[in-house]
Nucleic acid binder design. Structure first.
Lengths: 147, 147
DNA sequence: CAGAATCCTAACCGATACTG
DNA sequence: CAGTATCGGTTAGGATTCTG
């Protein structure tokens, strides 16, 4: 897609946040691209684990928090490979040995994931508080319908 | 994503809230938090649209390209509200008017989304190339099954 | 206009069994 | 060890209908 869109700087945003100008119909400035990659349950974890070095399939599976199924690891890692984020090396030994590692592209994503994690960690209390407040208020609202 | 593991703290304190037990030294801890929020199809778009200012329900819906359904917009916006990322203001008029805007927390996420978009835009060609290469190679590998 | 409720499909994902 | 193939449960998400 040629990103030939006009920048409609709507109005003066009072804060210093980046004004996201987006009027591409199908792919909101490409956010969908990366979200599709990060959106599934496991991709990020694979990237994170691979960030520290080369790993074999089984080892990768073991290290992923929460226990990814073999099937999902295969799918995830294949998708990542297809997108050029992960490099897969097969050694024709017996038993077979396959190593996974991040490509440069994959490594560049690591920073982003780190930011994501940082934000998440930093604001987790806020989110938790917001949820509690919301749920509490919602519970008040609810008629509770006793008996 | 599901509310999957109902956090079994080591002390045996079984709480209701999804406490993320994470003893991994890596920064993966907490990534799920934000990914759960951004992982669904629409949250990011809502945040993006709201980044530029206050919007009403219908207007928000119209601006999200690709056409979000009314149902999904409601769900998305509610979740965002619950997490303290979006503020919802109801004006008791006729017809009803509801305005959505980012909270400070939501605005802080905007930076991240921006980074996401930037990365995506910057590396889209790489990803596209990688895919083409991968698919091409995969096609070669395929037996082609001549009849 | 805003949204709640219902129905239904597709995709995601895990468990299992089989292959090389 | 490193997959592939298949089945079934769960969920995401769209379309439609109804209410205030």
């Amino acid at each position: 897609m040629s990103a030939g869109h006009t920048a409609v700087t709507t109005s003066g945003t009072t804060t210093d946040e980046p004004v996201i100008v987006c009027e591409t119909p199908q792919d909101e400035c490409g956010v969908r691209d990366v979200l599709d990659r990060l959106g599934d349950k496991w991709s990020v974890y694979v990237v994170v684990e691979l960030a520290s070095g080369v790993l074999r399939f089984k080892e990768l599976q073991r290290r992923i928090h929460g226990g990814i199924s073999q099937r999902m690891l295969t799918l995830t890692v294949r998708r990542l490979e297809r997108d050029g984020l992960v490099k897969r090396t097969v050694y024709p030994t017996v038993p077979p040995q396959v190593e996974y590692e991040l490509t440069d592209l994959g490594h560049s994503l690591t920073h982003l994931v780190k930011s994501l994690a940082d934000w998440s960690i930093a604001h987790r209390p806020d989110i938790a508080a917001a949820r509690e407040a919301y749920d509490g208020k919602a519970a008040q609202e609810e008629p509770a319908a006793a008996g």
